[in-house]
Write a protein that binds this DNA or RNA. Structure first.
Length: 297
DNA sequence: AAGCAATCCAACCGCCTAATA
DNA sequence: TTATTAGGCGGTTGGATTGCT
């Protein structure tokens, strides 16, 4: 049953810093045979390393096009904003910053940004270390989707965990900053040709906007399928170009990248979101919510 | 110049999900 | 369907480097 045993327990494997010769062996092998099959790679490439170690070395160091060090001002601002949205989800953050690795960004955050931001804003709970570092204890004490902070802003950080269902009442969606569009205009493929598709209708109508109600804190992010992260590209000033399923790209006439949920109505006031339903919400509606305004089911 | 502290960052560890036999 | 592992991820470590006294 199952797959063949992993190499990780093998004796006699090299550990620690990689030598130039090991780097060359790994690079030559991956260039010839491509990425993947990491378990078998060390043996085939003549490396005395664990496959996991090879993968990490390739992805974080040897892979062509990687930028290392010298984080620019723009990149730094983007990291901060993305971290506000996503918390410590380094791979997702790295996915929005070209040619940077998650490890690089994580290191930069931990060594530079966190300290600086903590200094600038010592009350920011997002920047504090976890009081209880034991993940097992955290799991026992908290719902995996309810990593709460004491103030209203919070980042839900779940490791390899997904929200299955959540109920949001329409009332809770106030305030909506701008009227959301009623549909995404069209879906295009890689060749910029329109694709036949059903309209992605928003299940709620916009409310009156009261500027006094606006709270633009962006510390909140739900843990839906993060593959859909491109829907936040407007906010992040990044090209709205990442592919969705079927190699298609959604765009809207105002290029705002509004989120259009495929949710089920429970009644006129409440919507049930399931795991694959976040082809999104109006971004501000989501980010203005506090964690306590959700009922997890 | 020496010793120590602070910082950096590559690599490892352990957990989780998806894949697969 | 089930058991098991590979791949991927975030957290952490520890050796190397840099800065300070």
């Amino acid at each position: 049953m199952g797959r063949n045993p992993c190499c990780s327990k093998d004796e006699g494997l090299n550990r620690g810093a990689w030598t130039a010769m090991e780097d060359k062996l790994l690079t030559d092998y991956v260039k010839t045979h491509g990425e993947g099959k990491w378990r078998n790679l060390p043996k085939s490439a003549g490396l005395k390393r664990c496959g996991k170690s090879c993968r990490l070395r390739w992805l974080n160091y040897l892979r062509p096009g990687i930028k290392r060090g010298n984080i620019t001002q723009d990149e730094e601002e983007l990291i901060i904003r993305l971290h506000n949205l996503l918390g410590n989800r380094w791979s997702l953050i790295a996915g929005r910053i070209p040619n940077r690795t998650d490890n690089d960004i994580k290191n930069y955050w931990n060594t530079t940004l966190r300290k600086r931001l903590q200094k600038d804003n010592p009350m920011s709970s997002n920047l504090k270390k976890e009081e209880n570092p034991n993940p097992k204890t955290q799991q026992l004490n908290q719902h995996p989707f309810k990593k709460m902070n004491t103030n209203s802003s919070c980042v839900i950080r779940t490791k390899a965990t997904r929200c299955s269902k959540v109920v949001i009442s329409q009332q809770q969606l106030k305030p909506i900053v701008a009227p959301p569009p009623t549909s995404v205009d069209h879906v295009i493929n890689d060749n910029n040709k329109p694709v036949e598709t059903e309209p992605l209708l928003l299940p709620f109508v916009s409310k009156e906007v009261h500027s006094d109600d606006l709270d633009l804190g962006l510390d909140f992010m739900m843990d839906f399928k993060m593959d859909d992260f491109n829907l936040f590209s407007d906010l992040l000033h990044v090209d709205f170009s990442q592919s969705l399923e079927n190699n298609s790209t959604i765009s809207s006439s105002d290029n705002k990248g509004y989120l259009c949920p495929k949710s089920d109505h429970i009644d006129d006031q409440t919507f049930l979101l399931s795991d694959d339903s976040l082809y999104g919400w109006d971004f501000q509606s989501i980010t203005n919510l506090t964690q306590s305004e959700f009922d997890w089911v």
